[in-house]
Amino acid sequence: MASKVDMVRAATKLLVMVVFLGSLMIWTMTPTNTYRQIWLPKLLTHLNSTYFGRQGITTLIYTFPILFMAVLGCIYLHLGKKVNDYTALESINGGKERLALWKKPMVVKGPLGIVSSIELGFFTLFIALLVWSLSIYLHNSFVTITPKSAAERGEQLWESKLERTALWLGVLGNISLVFLFFPVARGSSLLPLFGLTSEGSIKYHIWLGHLVMAFFTAHGIGYIVYWVATNNISQMLEWAKLGYQTWPERYLCWLV
């Protein structure tokens, strides 16, 4: 009986890893032209919902994988109790010993305190995602900004680039905000699957909140400077009655 339960748990964890890697691939591809020009139009064509509209696709791509992994995590932990495995992470082939190596502290002094190998790995992946996203967004935007295109909008070259930079800083804030909603409570079914603890994850939750505020503050300051430079400071006082004020706000809210 125990061996069958262990096999089901191993299959469940494997499925979680596949979904997690697929979600990472989507996040990695989102800033690219391949996603925006090829993948997204096909998704809009085949997955457009009458009830949810365009937000339904966003929910399916970015929200559903997390909810699905959380449900699988509940099943994984429940089956673990049936075989008296309360560590929730011991695999059928001596995975406990291998996991213990990843839980050893790698950094003991710093702003994040004690950081294990697993935590350091996820932290590195997250920073790499932010750097990758910002670099691709800026590269694709700056390619289309020329002195001629800026002049057609009545702007200088640096003003057009500042506006795009402020926009993409807001997008990075949205990306960080998405990860801020990952559950870090003691009863979370996701954390044990990845060898994380609630106590160790709370500090990242706090710093992630600081990062969100930093990106959104930079986004707002960037647009204020842009509006002042282009004599459109009145934009700060205008507010659309329906929808969002400008296309940057519409784009940012669509990404969420």
Rank of each mutant, 00 (worst) to 15 (best):
H46E: 07
H46W: 12
L47W: 14
L47Q: 08
L47F: 15
N48M: 06
N48P: 00
N48L: 10
S49H: 09
S49G: 02
G53P: 08
I57V: 13
I57W: 06
L60C: 13
L60Y: 11
I61T: 12
F64A: 15
L67F: 14
M69V: 03
M69E: 05
A70S: 14
L72N: 06
L72G: 05
G73H: 00
I75D: 00
Y76Q: 06
Y76L: 04
Y76V: 00
K81E: 04
K81Y: 02
K82P: 01
K82A: 09
K82D: 07
N84F: 07
L89F: 13
S91M: 07
S91F: 07
I92Q: 13
N93V: 12
G95R: 03
K96M: 12
E97P: 00
L101D: 08
W102C: 01
P105L: 02
M106A: 09
M106D: 06
M106I: 09
K109D: 12
G110Y: 03
P111W: 13
P111C: 07
L112W: 15
I114P: 10
I114G: 09
I114T: 15
V115Q: 04
S116L: 00
S116E: 03
S117M: 11
I118E: 01
E119V: 01
F122H: 00
T124Q: 00
L125F: 03
L125W: 01
F126W: 11
F126R: 06
I127R: 08
I127N: 08
A128Y: 02
V131H: 01
V131F: 09
W132V: 01
S133E: 09
S133L: 06
S133Q: 06
S133R: 10
L134I: 15
S135W: 07
I136S: 11
H139D: 14
N140T: 12
T146H: 02
S149L: 01
S149V: 06
A150T: 02
A150H: 01
A151H: 06
R153N: 14
G154W: 15
G154T: 10
G154H: 11
G154F: 12
G154S: 10
E155Q: 12
E155S: 01
E155W: 13
Q156H: 09
Q156F: 11
E159A: 01
K161V: 09
K161E: 11
K161T: 05
L162M: 14
L162Y: 08
